[in-house]
Write a protein that binds this DNA or RNA. Structure first.
Lengths: 240, 240
DNA sequence: CGCCGCTTTGATCTGGCTCAATCCGTGTGG
DNA sequence: CCACACGGATTGAGCCAGATCAAAGCGGCG
């Protein structure tokens, strides 16, 4: 699956960075080999199980983190406990709010996740240089803004059936960072409760809509988690 | 109302920029007087009535624009015509998607609006320098991302009553760029239809919730447009 | 095997939508 | 100056998509 890509500078690169997805599309792709070598002395690769908190809302951020594998959900809660997932981060997204002392969201692992932790000071030193690294981070922020606004349409104006279809379509097109086209089969990285919180629905409604898509042969689900998309065009059509 | 603020460099500044809000909090605040003088030769101050399109979705962007006065709504539509307002821009926000050839949203004036049009090439030249101007634009993008995610909670998890209260609270705290505290009285810059599209509700529901807030003495409305907030704490409490 | 947590399925309820009538402020023409 | 028409806003009645409440089903793990 994960093969080491050709890179003319591989010989000068830290071993761990050589096969790293972030080296290509992620922010590390904007660094010179010298910068990469320097920062790699401070980074730390970690693995997290589902349901672990990475950043807490309104808490100081000690580290940024590159998502290397798996899915991280960004959530917000109301005082009374109502929750909304406000974004999903896939490899090779950078986690952490640049230029803010505290996070504005809670970031939690949804699936098994691999992260590359980057100390706040180390990354901010690279950013303040104001070169290609800051630019790459800005591009990610702008992309996230576009995605957030797309999702606002889903939350505000789509039916439950359209919401669930949109969610499956989003996963199919985002879950594999190396793949350009939509994936026909994958494991759901989110529980029904997480999906409900992402779509602004209840668990029961999500379940019923999935059952409906299954009954209509658009998708198949095995073991509650493993999804196969039989008809991607049909799915796209149902996104509203 | 609008007074000329003290600025030690005023004498070197273009006349039009001297009393301009964007000179202070907006992107122009990040420019040197030389840059400001240079770019001011290309900018053009325009006035627009409500309901005018400034940027069209999926269309090339000819110009960026600084909002100097009034409110601009950013909208997206589904094929079947369902519409969602995905953001409101107040002075001194910059309008236009940086580093994209086309807009991802439609921008339309909601109220009477004053804009400072900046040709695409002129602003992008300043940005590619990568200095404080790009940084200031990045800060705006990050703030807009925070706001979009806050609004996702409103769209996905709040009741109609909470949505309307949140909308009024948002206006009270954003409509006047010079004022730090919330405004107790202002004119609604959006029609009931626009408000409904912002909140993911229908016109009728918005109207009923406003009537309810009026009946409960939290607000007053004159002429359908002029709002007075009697009890800001009460309003805040009703935001969920 | 038996418990536990997640998911599905069923029955009922309700907040917000739909459809329809009316109101009201504004602009227009007589 | 008034009569009238028009577009946005309000109000009312009834309905339905999705929420809520409740009861199984199922898979994984000790």
């Amino acid at each position: 699956m994960q093969t080491v890509r050709k890179d003319i500078h591989n010989s000068e690169l830290p071993i761990l960075c050589q096969s790293c997805e972030a080296r290509h599309q992620g922010i590390c792709g904007a660094m010179t080999s010298e910068q990469l070598l320097a920062i790699s002395k401070h980074t730390r690769r970690v693995r997290r199980e589902p349901g672990q908190e990475i950043l807490a809302d309104a808490m100081p951020i000690a580290s940024y983190a590159n998502v290397l594998k798996g899915v991280v959900k960004l959530t917000k809660v109301l005082e009374d406990g109502r929750q909304q997932v406000v974004g999903l981060q896939f490899a090779p997204d950078l986690l952490g709010r640049p230029f803010a002392s505290e996070s504005r969201v809670t970031a939690e692992t949804a699936s098994d996740v691999e992260l590359c932790m980057i100390p706040k000071t180390a990354l901010e030193a690279l950013m303040s240089a104001g070169g290609p690294v800051e630019h790459r981070i800005m591009m990610q922020a702008l992309r996230e803004l576009d995605e957030a606004r797309d999702w606002m349409v889903t939350l505000g104006r789509k039916t439950a059936a359209e919401k669930v279809a949109s969610f499956l379509y989003l996963l199919a097109t985002h879950i594999d960072p190396t793949e350009e086209t939509a994936l026909a089969t994958f494991d759901l990285p989110l529980s029904r409760a997480d999906i409900a919180d992402f779509l602004g629905l209840t668990i029961e409604t999500v379940s019923r809509q999935l059952t409906k898509l299954k009954a209509e042969k658009v998708i198949e689900i095995a073991n509650y988690r493993h999804v196969s998309i039989n008809d991607l065009t049909q799915l796209r059509l149902r996104c509203g």
